[in-house]
Simulated assay, not measured.
Amino acid sequence: MLEFARYYGRRRVKGALAMTAGFALLVALYVWMFPSVSEGIDLDAYTETLPPALREAFGLQSLGTIEGFLAAELYAFGWVLLLGVYFAYAAAGLVADDVDRGRMDMLLSLPVTRSRVLLEKFASVLVPLVVVNVVTPVVVALAVLGIDESISLADLAMVHALSVPYLLVAAAVGLLASVVFDRASVAQRVAAGGFFGLFLIDSVTAGTDVAALGALSPSRYYDPTAILVSSEWDFAGAGVLLAGTLVLLAASRTYWQRKDVA
Score class of each variant (00 low, 15 high):
M19H: 02
M19E: 12
T20N: 08
A21I: 00
A21V: 03
G22W: 02
F23A: 05
F23M: 10
F23T: 01
L25E: 06
L26G: 07
L26C: 03
A28T: 05
A28W: 05
L29F: 11
Y30N: 03
V31D: 04
W32A: 12
M33F: 13
S36I: 00
V37F: 10
V37E: 07
S38V: 12
E39M: 08
G40C: 03
I41D: 00
I41M: 13
D42C: 03
D42I: 02
D42Y: 02
D42N: 12
L43F: 04
L43T: 06
D44W: 04
D44G: 10
D44Y: 09
D44C: 11
A45M: 12
Y46C: 00
Y46L: 14
Y46H: 11
E48H: 08
E48K: 13
E48P: 01
E48G: 11
L50G: 08
L50F: 01
L50P: 06
P52E: 09
A53N: 03
L54D: 01
L54R: 05
E56K: 14
E56H: 15
E56N: 14
A57Y: 08
A57R: 10
F58K: 09
F58G: 08
L60K: 09
Q61N: 12
S62H: 13
S62E: 15
L63Y: 05
L63E: 01
T65Y: 04
I66N: 00
E67M: 00
E67W: 00
G68M: 03
G68T: 01
G68P: 00
F69C: 06
L70D: 01
A71W: 06
A71P: 06
A72E: 07
E73F: 04
E73C: 03
L74I: 11
L74W: 02
L74V: 12
Y75I: 04
Y75L: 14
A76W: 02
A76Y: 07
A76Q: 14
A76M: 14
F77E: 08
W79M: 15
L83H: 04
L83V: 12
V85D: 01
Y86L: 11
Y86D: 03
A88Y: 00
Y89Q: 10
Y89K: 08
Y89T: 07
A90N: 06
A90V: 06
A91Y: 02
A92M: 02
G93K: 05
L94A: 12
L94R: 09
V95Y: 10
V95L: 15
A96S: 15
A96D: 12
D98C: 05
V99N: 13
V99L: 15
D100H: 15
D100L: 13
R101P: 06
R101E: 14
R101M: 13
G102F: 09
R103K: 13
R103V: 09
M104A: 15
D105L: 15
D105W: 11
M106F: 15
M106S: 13
L107P: 10
L108Y: 09
S109F: 09
S109D: 08
S109V: 05
L110F: 13
L110E: 10
L110R: 14
P111D: 05
P111A: 06
P111L: 07
P111Q: 07
V112D: 01
V112C: 01
V112T: 10
R114W: 02
S115L: 10
R116L: 11
R116T: 11
R116Y: 07
V117E: 04
V117S: 05
V117T: 08
L118V: 01
L119V: 02
L119G: 00
L119K: 08
E120W: 00
E120F: 02
K121N: 10
F122E: 04
A123R: 05
